[in-house]
Nucleic acid binder design. Structure first.
Length: 556
RNA sequence: UGGGAUGUCGCCAAGUGGCUAAGGCACCAGGUUUUGAUCCUGGCAUUCGCAGGUUCGAGUCCUGCCAUCCCAGCCA
């Protein structure tokens, strides 16, 4: 049996039981976004769950746009949502639907409720409706229009549709129970008058159905077996069931609620994300620091890694905040297996190898992946002057520092051993150049068998490709910014660091490809599409684990 | 003071009355290594929000309590 997309959880347990009891013989789920914004990491969980569960049971998952409120919806959002789902690796095949596809049927079912005396047209103002709904401590009061005759209601509802009434002047309400402890059951509004152009139905309608009336019926029309949604809809389930129990539709999907995905140090609310964009804190909705799917994509997170992450997180009803380290682990885990290795120097320090011939250039062989020969190898030019990382030299190094300091020998990755002879400083005392010597016998092997603890990466000065590197850190300094009075207070001022003088080994930067590279000993990087600077720009996807950072901290 | 839910290791999460409470992340200690990466080995809850009770036996059943979250849009 193939590996499952979704680990067993309380929902798959229910599905297993439904299949075993022959309540169902197939599984049909749906992902029901409202096209009113961009998808984010939280939606990824719902997408992976709905499409993943369907795939695990050889079922299908529909994409259904929940487009019942033309005030907020746009085609642009619908487009980006489809792009994001596809990018995540899922396919709705022929099953793309809109709640608005069912407007005629919905209208018919509303009339059916009226005929059963289970719905009525209410003339109260919005304020009156709110006031008479009561609150947690006060039961609602029946509307004075609650007992209109079926004929009157039918005629009024038709007139609503025909555009005979002003926006907001009347609504259609389900007749349930104004005394219910569940406020959703206190005669919920199911249709409102709203003269507004709809992205799908144009100007055909001036009345639009509400979510609670629409969603359950749409599910039933499509033959959804398990309607998975988030916890806040738990209170709506009695209404979901009430509607389906009181119309003639012959299908009753089961609504099951699970908890949303929250990731530490991030936010996902549309309102807050949008504020970051508006205030210029980030470079747009697809800024690599954003939790939007388009942000994750630009950052270079592989879709497979996001799927693995969601799988690792699990599904339950407990409200939780998952550690960002779980996401990073999933990214590293994927990239470690898939990213070709190259050498890039982020903060260059020039090294002159004094005993290496001035004009000589050697083409050295470097493997593209140390654990996977199928990645092959490449030729890397080596010469007398190279760049190494500034951090790989320390003037006063202790024994635990395995890199360059006066008199210490290190290996240059894929090349020779060099020994640091002396550092050259500028007038301000900054180290600006290192003078080293190399051992011509040490190339590619252990030479005389002596061991060197450290291996550092490098790029030949004459062959270096100048690039710009963008390093990213978490956007917030607080593990749960959304819980703050003002989440903007928690913004990390250092979430972006631009390194304009980085260099990369030749043959990589000119390619305009969708590949994530590991700059060995640094991090994973992916080329950004931007051309705002003259040089190629590389975004840091995720750092490598860094046990040296811990050792360094302990020493301080 | 109403209704709905949730509480198992620092963060997630299995567990559906019966072997010593899975697994992942994090963390700690070692080993391998031409990336201080990867990989490998070992450690990491006598205890399941609390208190009673039922039972030969309870994280799993019952009762009470406590904590946290959601609901008063003509939003979804």
């Amino acid at each position: 049996m193939a590996e499952r997309n979704v680990t067993e959880n309380f929902i798959t347990n229910i599905i297993d039981e439904d299949l075993a009891s022959e309540k169902h013989h197939k599984v049909v789920t749906r992902f029901p976004p409202e096209p009113n914004g961009y998808l984010h990491i939280g939606h990824a969980k719902s997408i992976c769950l709905n499409f993943g569960v369907a795939a695990d049971y050889q079922g299908i998952c529909h994409l259904r746009f929940d487009d019942t409120n033309p005030e907020k919806e746009s085609k642009e959002y619908a487009e980006s949502i489809q792009q994001d789902i596809r990018w995540l690796g899922f396919d709705w095949l022929q099953n793309k639907f809109h709640a608005s596809d069912y407007f005629d049927q919905l209208y018919g079912y509303a009339k059916q409720l009226i005929e059963k005396s289970l719905a009525y047209v209410d003339d109260q103002t919005p304020e009156e409706i709110r006031e008479n709904r009561g609150d947690f401590n006060r039961p609602g009061i029946n509307s004075p229009f609650r007992d209109r005759s079926v004929e009157d209601n039918l005629q009024l509802f038709r007139a609503m549709r025909a555009g005979e009434f002003a926006d907001g002047s009347k609504v259609l309400r389900a007749k349930i129970d104004m005394q219910s402890g569940n406020i959703n059951m206190r005669d919920p509004v199911i249709y409102r008058i709203k003269r507004m152009h709809h992205i799908n139905t144009g100007d055909q309608w001036c009345i639009y159905p509400m979510y609670d009336f629409t969603h359950c019926i749409s599910d039933a029309i499509e033959g959804i077996t398990h309607s998975l949604c988030t916890l806040e809809f738990e209170d709506h389930r009695p209404l979901y069931d009430w509607v389906l129990d009181n119309i003639d539709i012959g299908c009753h999907p089961q609504q099951i609620e699970f908890s949303r995905l929250n990731v530490s140090f991030t936010i996902t609310s549309k309102r807050r994300l949008s504020k970051l964009v508006e205030e210029g804190i980030v470079d747009g909705w697809n800024d690599p620091r954003m939790s939007t799917i388009s942000g994750l994509r630009r950052r270079g997170y592989p879709p497979a890694a996001i799927r693995e992450f969601v799988k690792a997180v699990g599904v339950s009803k407990k409200e939780s905040v998952i550690s960002m380290t779980v996401l990073e682990d999933a990214i590293r885990n994927n990239l470690n297996k898939t990213a070709p290795r190259v050498m890039g120097v982020l903060r260059p320090l020039k090294v002159v190898i004094e005993n290496y011939p001035e004009d000589k250039v050697e083409m050295l062989t470097g493997s593209n992946h140390p654990q996977d020969e199928s990645f092959g190898s490449r030729k890397i030019p080596f010469s007398r002057e190279i760049y190494v990382e500034q951090d790989d030299y320390q003037e006063n190094a202790n024994r635990k520092f395995f890199r360059l300091t006066e008199g210490r020998e290190v290996r240059l990755r894929h090349a020779y051993y060099i020994t640091c002879q002396r550092a050259i400083k500028d007038d301000a005392g900054n180290v600006v150049e290192l003078r080293c010597t190399y051992d011509p016998e040490s190339r590619g092997g252990t030479a005389d068998g002596r061991k060197v603890k450290g291996t550092i990466h490098w790029v030949s000065v004459a062959h270096a490709e100048p690039i710009e590197v963008r390093l990213y850190d978490r956007l917030f300094n607080h593990p749960n910014p959304a819980s703050l009075d003002n989440f903007m207070d928690a913004i990390n001022p250092d979430s972006l660091e631009i390194l304009p003088n980085a260099v990369l080994e030749p043959g990589i930067a000119e390619k305009d490809e969708d590949v994530v590279y590991q700059f060995e000993r640094n991090a994973y990087f992916k080329r950004d599409k931007t051309h705002e600077t003259g040089k190629p720009v590389f975004n840091q996807v995720v750092t490598m684990r860094d046990s040296w950072a811990k050792i360094e901290q302990e020493n301080n």
